[in-house]
Nucleic acid binder design. Structure first.
Lengths: 231, 231, 231, 231
DNA sequence: AATGAATGAGTCTTCATTCAT
DNA sequence: TATGAATGAAGACTCATTCAT
């Protein structure tokens, strides 16, 4: 159709779509090609192999993820805590709206853990290691976190976040909480016999804990609450 | 004879060992059989298929996970917060010592998320759905969380944890933080240009945040700290 | 049909048949399997890969080749020169009757040349190097030559071959001549404008040269000629 | 311009270089193009396909091979046997210095054998048959042999080679011996348990046999030996 | 003459799973 | 229970070749 512009993007988009509906493993390169309206061979012209394609997708995921961070950081007239709260909302929304991207990011974090441990580095697929996009990711993956940390710094400066907190550590803690939260949605959604927890019940509690963790002195008066719903 | 149950255990142990060293995908059923010293065919006598084997492994992981919870809960003379703190240490240690089990548990949480969403339930491998062990897991997976919640209740009762916290929600929040923490160890280990964070730096901050989240009134005087190192 | 005895042999025979009619490259593993009446997978059960199958075939070729040598060497009442002459006839006949085997042997000689040169050894397909049959061939390939050399020794002892000749060197020279002869049949068969050479013309001259090369003192009287036609 | 023929030569040279280092099969047309500094498409402008390129290369090999023959034949003041001896040295040197060319020549001889046999002619790749260069080769391939035969005739005339030998037959026999010699270098290099033969040992014996095969009456007095080393 | 994106037939290879014994 | 030969669907990847520009 109208998609003659960028073959690379076309392939990537097809991959996202197919990974979403069938999963990475169940998606064959030929499916991707067909869905993109091109030949199988051309897919290999643009991406060295399936892993490389997935790493390219992951790279795109990180870029987009970073954009979300940037958008929040650029918003005027917000305190650091408000930005951080907004960011949390955005991240959760991003995870919901772009499952494949979000999973790709989490998968990359796992890769990173293996990569950083000499013992486990060899477990990483050589194809992955050789991917240019993987190498690029190694360079840029911390960028979102960097922006997130800047939000915390901002919060400390404007008094919305406790002064004694260390920006990077604080941001990573928040992010890790969100990641855990996302993972936890599985069991939380479960209708156990004795344990009746639903996201709707968890949400406010989770949020309150998080905010109290961060709140600085100003908060007592201004009484900031998260804008929009996290969930 | 007494041999049956042993064979099953033998297979499972072999699987754990191989999944650890090569990963689930790279491990072939034949490898498992060979490592267990039995024939390929017999593996299929004890486990319907590879997915079923993995679900059995996951079940075992949950059992062992639950034992850790129980052990902590049984310890005498500890406040709720102390138990929770001990539990955190135990979980992190468990994750480190039993990577495959821990990954299996996280994988099950992902499955659960898909399972609970009618839209995504169909993405679950039919082999998984048919597994007896998967069905069993659906019944018992909340047990660890149940014990964890009891610790929070205990903490509220003994004043070590804020009274206004809801036990289940609080426990899941704590657990989700630990899960996120684990996931985050990948990027945290990274030596970025501007962002110099290492697990050793993150640890204390993460812990403090967590404890302050929970601390009740007693704490001011008793000054509880986590026993042992989380990491 | 009746071929239920030895699958390995069945596959090998199918391979020979197909390599003969289509060539090694043009023959797909699936063809071999189909021709053998088995599944593609089973072919890989018996042979690691296509190269391995080819090396197994080469091994068989050498075995059979060696048998020809042994048969000649065992023949009673023959002088060394007569045995050597018989052998030449046999080799040429073998080459004609078992083209694939003969080509496999020549191919192995090429491999050997590469293998013995550290500079070119890396040009050998890793699959070939890893083949058990290739390793076996490295051990046994000289056996035919050993028997051939024994024939020369015999000839020197019985006076049918010049005493000053060195057995191994002489045998290898003879064998190399046969190999060259075989290779040369291509152009010799050609109807050039100026050069009218046909195998029938070449044959006697080639033979005479060869025999004169070897003849000892006894020959003058006994007037031995090659039994049967070389060609 | 003068560029056309240069491009063709450029491609051919690149092909030789790559075939030498990686082999024909492992060399992709794209590699050849890249190495020649041109586009893949242009390669197909100059050569119909990969086979055609290889046949062009073979043609060049024959031309160069023939030049070697001519050079020897032109040398003044040499007897026929001396020329033939010189030629042998040259051929072996050529094989060593231009492996790809030499292999291409041998490959052509195999093709010729198939071509001359109606049964096997159909086994030749149609691409090869259609190649202009292959057709040309059919016409000119005997030229080196023609010159070689003239050397033998010369030797017979000047008494350095036995009068009873037939020139063509004799030359082909000599050539075939050299071909066989080359092929045999593989196993000869092998350190067998019982068979300790090395090229250095084989050389003199091989040469002596060859010379005695040819020597005429004059030789007894003149005592010609091969000039330079064959190996 | 020259480019290089695009094609797609062609093949090897893997491995979970079955089943006759 | 136990074996392991046998199956066959599935899929990644290559590369000679074409052709619009």
């Amino acid at each position: 159709m109208a998609g003659e512009k960028n073959k690379e993007k076309l392939i990537l988009d097809s991959a996202v779509s197919l990974f979403t509906s069938k999963g990475y493993l169940a998606t064959r390169m030929e499916d991707v090609a067909k869905s993109a309206g091109i030949s199988k061979g051309l897919t290999y012209f643009y991406f060295k192999n399936k892993e490389d394609l997935f790493m390219a997708l992951t790279k795109k995921a990180f870029d987009q993820f970073k954009d979300e961070f940037r958008d929040v950081y650029r918003s005027k007239g917000k305190s650091g805590l408000e930005m951080l709260s907004d960011l949390m909302v955005k991240i959760v929304a991003f995870a919901k709206a772009n499952q494949v991207y979000y999973d790709a990011i989490l998968n990359f974090l796992d890769l990173l853990k293996k990569y950083n441990n000499p013992e486990t580095r060899k477990l990483i697929d050589p194809k992955t290691m050789e991917s240019v996009h993987f190498q690029k990711l190694l360079e840029i993956h911390h960028e979102p976190a960097k922006i997130g940390s800047m939000m915390v710094s901002q919060g400390i400066k404007d008094g919305s976040i406790r002064a004694e907190l260390q920006p990077e550590i604080t941001f990573y803690t928040v992010w890790s909480m969100i990641i855990g939260y996302e993972k936890m949605l599985g069991p939380i959604d479960y209708e156990g016999k004795d344990l009746k927890i639903h996201p709707e019940n968890w949400e406010p509690g989770f949020l309150r804990l998080m905010q109290e963790m961060l709140k600085g002195t100003i908060q007592a008066t201004k009484k900031t609450t998260v804008q929009g719903s996290l969930f």
